[in-house]
Design a protein around this nucleic acid. Sequence first.
RNA 1: AGGAGUGGGCGCAUGGUCGCUGUCCGCCUUCGGGCGGGCAGAGGAAAGUCCGAACACCGCAGGGCAAGGUGGUUCGUAACACGAACUGGGGGCAACCCUAAGGAAAGUGCCACAGAAAAUAUACCGCCGGGCAACCGGUAAGGGUGAAAAGGCGAGGUAAGAGCUCACCGCCUUCAUGGUGACAUGGAGGGCAUGGCAAACCCCACCUGGUGCAAGACCAAAUAGGGAAACGUUUGAGGGCGGCUCGUCCGAGGUUUCCGGGUAGGUUGCUAGAGGCGCCGGGCGACCGGCGUCCCAGUUAAAUGAUCAUGGCCCGCUUCGGCGGGUACAGAAUUCGGCUUAUAGCCCACUCCUUUUU
RNA 2: GGCCCCAUCGUCUAGUGGCCUAGGACACUGGCCUCUCACGCCGGUAACAGGGGUUCGAGUCCCCUUGGGGUCA
Length: 118
Amino acid sequence: MHGQALPKSDLISRPWEYEAVYRRGKRVRGNNCSLICLPTDRENNRLGISIHGIKKAVKRNRIKRIIREFYRLNRAALPAATDMVFTVREGFSPNSPEEVKQAIFTLLKKIGSPSPSR
RNA sequence: AGGAGUGGGCGCAUGGUCGCUGUCCGCCUUCGGGCGGGCAGAGGAAAGUCCGAACACCGCAGGGCAAGGUGGUUCGUAACACGAACUGGGGGCAACCCUAAGGAAAGUGCCACAGAAAAUAUACCGCCGGGCAACCGGUAAGGGUGAAAAGGCGAGGUAAGAGCUCACCGCCUUCAUGGUGACAUGGAGGGCAUGGCAAACCCCACCUGGUGCAAGACCAAAUAGGGAAACGUUUGAGGGCGGCUCGUCCGAGGUUUCCGGGUAGGUUGCUAGAGGCGCCGGGCGACCGGCGUCCCAGUUAAAUGAUCAUGGCCCGCUUCGGCGGGUACAGAAUUCGGCUUAUAGCCCACUCCUUUUU
RNA sequence: GGCCCCAUCGUCUAGUGGCCUAGGACACUGGCCUCUCACGCCGGUAACAGGGGUUCGAGUCCCCUUGGGGUCA
């Protein structure tokens, strides 16, 4: 264990789980992307990615992989015990995990202190 | 040297660190899985879904109709709308390229405007003959219209003209030869009859049952409902008619157990195949046969990634030490055979044209 | 992933291969009317998704591409 592994069980993969996050989560909007967080009972945090409006499969997969890579490297810095869904719209095209890191950290500043308000 | 044509091929490489998916081996296990190691992990188009098949389920005695598709010939192929070779037509100086290319004397329909007339024919300006003229007769050479005008061109002929006659070309009929065939070549005859459009209806020949891996098969929560049995119930729960009592009709809820269908979810179908590579043989070729050898993704809110270094290739700057930038199109989803479309930068082979030199 | 459908002015739509230089309504805009606005009247701008082919001639027929939309759990 190196603390940087990302197995598939830590990804949100069921439609109703996405529905729950969309319905009851807290949403922060950014430039062509937004972050929705929902506190849960489990110990670690989980990630979901939703991409809309990007038609070429190569670009879509690349955005997904870069976001996942960012999440793998910076997981400890993110609030624990939450399901977070990263939503991407047309026009958002990062080239490296650093850009995603900046974008997400500005969103987290918008949320404020990672308050575990239930 | 420059320009052009055809066919084929490549489409970044290597290593370190951190990750993802599958599989094999070993160990641990609370039997859910976890850890360590080995191996494998996007394409020439994976794309568009335009055709053809395999496979699966449903339907089906046989035949016909309808609907749709294909359309030179002969081969190739599991099959095709694909490919090869050849034929006809068109384009190009040429290499070579393009070609839905059967039938218009089976029928129906359309051919705007213009024009006399758009297909049974007919005669506007004309030409010629007759006639004082009105007009009558003969013509279709010429003009004009149009995308297209009833063979073309030349000569003879004539009142003027006309396949009326003749030569050449085209067309039709027929014969011979060559070819598996499309067709080609040649001879004889006819004397012009047969305008175009079938990616208009149609006729002819051939082909096609429908749905598609979200096909189909198996396991199977929760909730609702179905069936069966037992207990319970005729001392009648509940409901309908009726304003209500009475009445009358329908009638077994309820509890327990079992069964079958089946949703979420899971497993399977799921990758060894009309397979790749090499050699030999057959064929002009597409392709086929034989032998040897190899195992080469299998995901499911979607794995194949991030970063660092070194080196290729291209472009720009250069103080010739280097520096900076770029490295296309694009991501498997049941599997194959084609077609079409996108594609930076290259490589190889053959061929043609122009110019120069020998 | 499979299977289908559609595309005409800014918007909603007509349009038997030739009367199409593509019609109508709303919108926009110029003028008239009015003290001004509205209404009304007279005009104007503005479109066949792109590329090939068939045809004398294509918005219409055929093929390819592009962009939308539907459906199957």
